Amino acid sequence: SISSRVKSKRIQLGLNQAELAQKVGTTQQSIEQLENGKTKRPRFLPELASALGVSVDWLLN
């Protein structure tokens, strides 16, 4: 799922939720909701993929 991929990649990069949120241009709460499965397809998906160094396709599939 996107939530597990985001969380595992974030941890692999040594980032906390607030640091990832800053790179993406969103809030820590938005990252938390995404990782908890409350958000399925965030509006900041391209920025998120870029910050994590992955493709949008990788996040979604």
Rank of each mutant, 00 (worst) to 15 (best):
S1I: 11
S1F: 09
S1A: 10
S1N: 13
S1D: 15
I2Y: 01
I2V: 10
I2R: 03
I2C: 09
I2F: 10
I2S: 03
S3T: 06
S3H: 10
S3M: 06
S3L: 02
S3I: 06
S3F: 02
S3G: 15
S4P: 04
S4V: 11
S4M: 12
S4G: 11
S4T: 13
S4F: 07
R5W: 03
R5Q: 06
R5Y: 02
R5P: 03
R5V: 07
R5N: 07
R5C: 06
V6D: 02
V6W: 00
V6F: 00
V6K: 01
V6I: 11
V6G: 02
V6H: 00
V6L: 06
K7H: 07
K7R: 14
K7E: 09
K7P: 01
S8N: 12
S8A: 14
S8R: 10
S8L: 11
K9Q: 11
K9W: 02
K9F: 03
K9E: 04
K9P: 02
K9V: 12
R10V: 02
R10P: 02
R10L: 04
R10Y: 01
R10T: 15
R10Q: 02
R10C: 04
R10K: 01
I11K: 09
I11W: 05
I11H: 10
Q12F: 09
Q12L: 10
Q12A: 13
Q12S: 15
Q12C: 10
Q12R: 09
Q12H: 09
L13V: 07
L13E: 05
L13H: 07
L13K: 07
L13C: 08
L13P: 01
G14Q: 07
G14F: 03
G14P: 02
G14H: 06
G14A: 05
G14S: 05
G14W: 00
G14N: 08
L15I: 11
L15H: 04
L15R: 03
L15D: 03
L15C: 07
L15A: 03
L15W: 13
N16G: 12
N16A: 09
N16C: 08
N16Y: 03
Q17M: 11
Q17S: 09
Q17Y: 09
Q17G: 06
Q17D: 04
Q17H: 10
A18I: 12
A18R: 15
A18P: 05
A18H: 12
A18M: 12
A18Q: 12
A18G: 11
E19C: 06
E19L: 04
E19R: 04
E19D: 15
E19Q: 12
E19S: 07
E19A: 08
E19K: 04
E19F: 03
L20A: 02
L20Y: 00
L20I: 06
L20K: 01
L20N: 01
L20S: 01
L20V: 05
L20G: 02
L20R: 00
A21F: 00
A21Q: 01
A21W: 00
A21R: 01
A21K: 02
A21T: 00
Q22Y: 10
Q22T: 11
Q22V: 11
Q22L: 12
Q22G: 10
K23C: 11
K23E: 08
K23L: 15
K23S: 08
K23W: 08
V24R: 00
V24D: 01
V24E: 01
V24G: 02
V24Y: 00
V24W: 02
G25T: 02
G25H: 07
G25E: 04
G25R: 06
G25K: 06
G25Q: 06
G25L: 03
T26D: 04
T26K: 06
T26H: 05
T26C: 14
T26N: 04
T26M: 08
T26G: 05
T27P: 06
T27G: 06
T27V: 07
T27E: 07
T27W: 03
Q28D: 06
Q28G: 07
Q28A: 13
Q28N: 07
Q28Y: 06
Q28C: 10
Q28K: 13
Q28H: 10
Q28F: 07
Q28P: 13
Q29S: 11
Q29G: 11
Q29V: 11
Q29I: 11
Q29A: 13
S30W: 15
S30K: 13
S30H: 13
S30A: 15
S30V: 13
S30R: 12
I31N: 00
I31C: 04
I31A: 02
I31D: 01
I31S: 00
I31V: 06
I31W: 00
I31M: 05
I31P: 01
E32S: 11
E32K: 12
E32C: 09
E32L: 08
E32Q: 11
E32P: 01
E32N: 10
Q33D: 15
Q33K: 13
Q33V: 07
Q33F: 13
Q33E: 15
L34K: 01
L34C: 05
L34W: 03
L34P: 02
L34I: 13
E35R: 00
E35Y: 00
E35D: 02
E35F: 00
E35S: 01
E35V: 01
E35A: 01
E35G: 01
E35T: 01
N36P: 01
N36E: 12
N36T: 11
N36I: 10
N36K: 11
G37R: 05
G37S: 06
G37Q: 06
G37D: 09
G37N: 07
K38V: 14
K38T: 15
K38C: 15
K38I: 15
K38G: 12
T39W: 07
T39F: 11
T39Q: 11
T39P: 09
T39G: 11
T39D: 13
T39L: 15
T39I: 15
T39V: 13
T39H: 12
K40A: 13
K40V: 14
K40G: 12
K40D: 15
K40C: 14
K40P: 15
K40M: 14
K40F: 13
K40R: 11
R41S: 14
R41Q: 13
R41F: 15
R41L: 15
R41H: 14
R41V: 14
R41W: 15
R41N: 15
P42F: 12
P42M: 09
P42E: 05
P42V: 15
P42L: 10
R43D: 13
R43S: 14
R43Y: 12
R43H: 13
R43G: 13
R43A: 15
F44G: 04
F44P: 02
F44D: 04
F44Y: 13
F44S: 04
F44I: 06
F44V: 03
F44C: 08
F44T: 03
L45R: 00
L45V: 08
L45I: 10
L45W: 05
L45F: 06
L45C: 04
P46I: 13
P46L: 14
P46Q: 13
P46D: 13
P46C: 14
P46A: 14
P46G: 11
P46T: 13
P46N: 14
E47P: 04
E47H: 08
E47C: 09
L48S: 00
L48Q: 00
L48R: 00
L48H: 00
L48A: 01
L48D: 00
L48G: 00
L48T: 02
L48K: 00
A49K: 01
A49Y: 00
A49W: 00
A49M: 03
A49L: 04
A49T: 04
S50V: 13
S50Q: 14
S50R: 12
S50M: 12
S50F: 12
A51H: 06
A51I: 10
A51C: 06
A51V: 12
L52E: 01
L52V: 02
L52Y: 00
L52F: 03
G53E: 09
G53D: 09
G53Q: 08
G53W: 01
G53H: 08
G53F: 04
G53T: 04
G53N: 09
V54H: 01
V54M: 05
V54D: 11
V54W: 01
V54F: 03
V54S: 03
V54P: 01
S55M: 07
S55L: 07
S55Y: 05
V56T: 10
V56C: 10
V56G: 05
V56F: 08
D57T: 06
D57N: 09
D57C: 10
D57P: 04
D57L: 06
D57I: 06
W58C: 05
W58H: 05
W58F: 08
W58T: 04
W58G: 03
W58R: 02
L59D: 02
L59A: 00
L59E: 02
L59F: 06
L59S: 00
L59H: 00
L59N: 00
L59M: 04
L60P: 02
L60Y: 09
L60C: 10
L60R: 09
L60G: 07
N61T: 08
N61S: 14
N61L: 08
N61H: 12
N61F: 10
N61G: 15
N61V: 08
